[in-house]
Structure formats: structure tokens, C-alpha cells
């Protein structure tokens, strides 16, 4: 099953469209990587789908499912940004449970008094390799650990669609590699839209890779890149190198 998405976005009437009537398909239950250079509008696209674009002149989005019915993505998504966005005043556990605590009435108890949720949060943190930090505060943690907590916060919402905006771009190569493996395992059967500027990341995690390309003055297009039929997360070997070369050629980096 596929979602068909059609999107136009322009911030101000005096500016050109970021993209116009751009159409693409997102297969359900798979990881779709959208690859593009900085400033091409890929983050805007993700924000638009997440419903957090403000003050746009043209903000048109249509998400259609297989049966041709238009759906609203607003209640189906969880979002993970470029930076971890952990609230410094909340403990790690409270950060993971933020989506539940936000909607709690003012005087009611915190959601980690709900033991099922509490257990689930602790279990997720443990699965992500950071089981022992639940009571720490974000400023005591390293960048990689913070991103793991942000991943736990995204996963615990248990939404069918997960939007990720360069979630691992700020990490060192080693941490990034292991977090990509973890993410691939934990995001199985979810519809994931992952924005990245890193061809290697797109090849490691993508079950469907779309490339943002702009030819001359035309508005950008998303074109599909044919992938090897191995399963994700793909390991890095000589064969992987060939695919990366192909992808870089498509991006126009090498001839």
C-alpha cells in the first residue's frame, strides 16, 4: 500500500515556490529516505507534512491513501528533529513521556505514575542502550545519548508514521552507525520519512530513496533511485561502495 503525496509550498508571494505540485509515493510500512543538499527544501517538506509550517503564502498538502481517500496526517505522525530538543527542566524519563505529560490536566499526576507507561519508557531506554539514565537530566548526557533519548520519545508515541529530519547528522561516525542500526530495528513496519543529506545514510536505511533534484529554474522534483534488494540496515562493503558511487552520480557530485 502506498501513500500518494502532493505538495506545494511558498513562504511569501514575492519569493519563488520552494516546490510546486511536487508528487511522490511513500510505501506504507517502509523507510523512505529523501536525499538532497542543504537548502533544497527537504526540511520544509517534512515540516509541512508534520503540520508545523507557519506563515506560508502557499501551503498546499494532499495525502491520499490507496483507496483514493484523502487523509489528514496530523494524528498519525510523530516527529524527530535535527537537534534532540530535550527539555532541560525534565528528567530523561519525563522527556521520554513528554507527549503524554503535555496533555495531562494541570493538577493531575505525572504519567509515570501510570505503571504501564513507566515500564514501557524504561524498557525502550534499555533497548536503546541507555537503561541506566532515566533519572538524569539532559545536560548531564552526551550528544549520542541525548539522541537516543529523543528516539525513545519518538518511538513511545507509537504512531504509524514517523517523520525524521536528519536525526543523526550531528553525531560522530561511530555513534551514527550504531544508532542507524537501532533505528532500523525499532522502526520496522512503520512508515518512515527520513530526511538526510548523507548518501551513505540513505543507502543504509532506505527501502525507498527519493532524490531532491532541481534542474535550472524549475521547481524541484523528487525522483526515485533504484536500490539493491538487500535488507536494511545495509552493511558497508565494496558492493555498497558501488551503489554509493551510483547515487553520487545521480546527485551530480561525480561524473
Amino acid at each position: 500500500m502506498n501513500y500518494s503525496i502532493e505538495a506545494s509550498l511558498r513562504y511569501h508571494s514575492s519569493l519563488p515556490h520552494i516546490y510546486q505540485e511536487m508528487q511522490f509515493f511513500v510505501p506504507e510500512g517502509k523507510i523512505t529516505c529523501i536525499l538532497g543538499e542543504s537548502g533544497c527544501g527537504k526540511s520544509s517538506l517534512l515540516k509541512q507534512i508534520a503540520g508545523i509550517v507557519e506563515r506560508a503564502n502557499v501551503n498546499h498538502l494532499r495525502v491520499v491513501n490507496d483507496k483514493g481517500r484523502e487523509i489528514s496526517a496530523n494524528n498519525l505522525i510523530s516527529y524527530m528533529g535535527q537537534s534532540d530538543l530535550l527539555m532541560p527542566w525534565l528528567s530523561v524519563l519525563d522527556n521520554v513521556l513528554l507527549s503524554f505529560d503535555l496533555k495531562r490536566p494541570f493538577f493531575s499526576k505525572k504519567s509515570h505514575n501510570n505503571s504501564a507507561l513507566h515500564e514501557q519508557a524504561l524498557y525502550l531506554l534499555k533497548e536503546l542502550g541507555v537503561g541506566d539514565i532515566a533519572n538524569k537530566h539532559p545536560d548531564q548526557l552526551s550528544g549520542g545519548t541525548r539522541q537516543r533519548v529523543a528516539l525513545a520519545r519518538t518511538l513511545i508515541q507509537n504512531k504509524p508514521i514517523v517523520l525524521m529530519d536528519e536525526p543523526f547528522s550531528a553525531l560522530d561516525a561511530v555513534t551514527r552507525y550504531s544508532l542507524q542500526n537501532l533505528a532500523a530495528a525499532k522502526l520496522k513496519n512503520k512508515t518512515v520519512l527520513l530526511i538526510t543529506h548523507d548518501p551513505q545514510e540513505a543507502l543504509r536505511l532506505g527501502e525507498n530513496v527519493l532524490v531532491f533534484s532541481k534542474k535550472g529554474k524549475n521547481t524541484p522534483l523528487l525522483t526515485r533511485f533504484d536500490l539493491p534488494n538487500s535488507s536494511i540496515p545495509r552493511g558497508i562493503n565494496s558492493d555498497f561502495g558501488k551503489w554509493e558511487e551510483k547515487l553520487l552520480k545521480k546527485l551530480g557530485v561525480i561524473r
Binding site: I77, S78, S83, W89, S99
Partner: peptide, 25 residues
């Protein structure tokens, strides 16, 4: 605004965002 947007994607309304994000921030 990134904090506010994150809260929005979690389905919080303006009042909840004020109470749980803006005030502590």
C-alpha cells in the same frame, strides 16, 4: 520555536504548550 513545534506535533494545544513548555522555558 523548535520546542513549540515539537509539542505541536505531539498534539498539544496552545494552552498546554504555554503551561508545559513556555512557562518552564
Amino acid at each position: 520555536p523548535d520546542y513549540l513545534n515539537l509539542a505541536k506535533t505531539m498534539g498539544a494545544n496552545n494552552w498546554q504548550i504555554l503551561l508545559r513548555i513556555r512557562l518552564p522555558a
